[in-house]
Design a binder for these strands. Sequence first.
DNA 1: GCCATAGGGGATAAAATTATCCCTATGCAA
DNA 2: TTGCATAGGGATAATTTTATCCCCTATGGC
Lengths: 127, 127
Amino acid sequence: MKNRKIPLNLNCGLDLVGEVLYGKWKMRLLWFIKQGHKRPSELQRKIPDASRRVLNVQLKELEDHELISKVVYAVVPPKVEYHLTEFGESLIPVIGAIGQWGDRNEERLRSLILAQQQFNVEVSKEG
Amino acid sequence: MKNRKIPLNLNCGLDLVGEVLYGKWKMRLLWFIKQGHKRPSELQRKIPDASRRVLNVQLKELEDHELISKVVYAVVPPKVEYHLTEFGESLIPVIGAIGQWGDRNEERLRSLILAQQQFNVEVSKEG
DNA sequence: GCCATAGGGGATAAAATTATCCCTATGCAA
DNA sequence: TTGCATAGGGATAATTTTATCCCCTATGGC
């Protein structure tokens, strides 16, 4: 999401959504904020595989795209809360639909993905 | 989608979907195939911003993930057709929902994205 | 012979995305 | 006084993803 060298494609709705939703942790961040996990440290505990830094960066992008808003309390230790904006709220059903499809097909997806992963490992051994 | 060094996250539905749907052109490929553009050359004309090579790679991944099936006709010049599998069909409503949200919010998204892009360019000039 | 069509793919370069490392600050508790 | 919790961010390394380049198949038409 930096200063890109390859021009953006903003032709259709799918391209536009991609620009704001691509990002390894973004959908999960929105989802957890929706569930009421508003503070950075809570989100970090919910998503332990991501580093604090990366979550900050992605939260900032979500904020720049007006999907969430940030409230900074002038207290010590610091306290910050994120909330979905109306715009962000309107995305929740979409994320829900994506997640549901994943959940409904969990077993199949898992085995497909692992099978392919396994295959790649084997191929690279021969390499 | 290679032999990864960073372990996969396959915790929830969102992770699983990500594995099969992340890829710059994948959703568009599925969408256009659904619209009846079955042949590689048609798809390439529909998505001129992607090179032929990249589309082949992404089509292969969609095939490995059983979202599409490939039919090769033994004729000259070669003829190939892709079709959605039932599994792939079941994803269409989800992609539809994503695209619709993008279309409904087209103007806003476009200006948000361009504004941020512009900002990045300016920041990097100061650099 | 040469080019066009329709499809494929290896090797490598470039770009974009993520991860890692290390630093800032305050106040409370052991 | 060291440690922990809160939150933030610059610089850089590592990884992953895309793009580019060039080559291949086979047949038919000029």
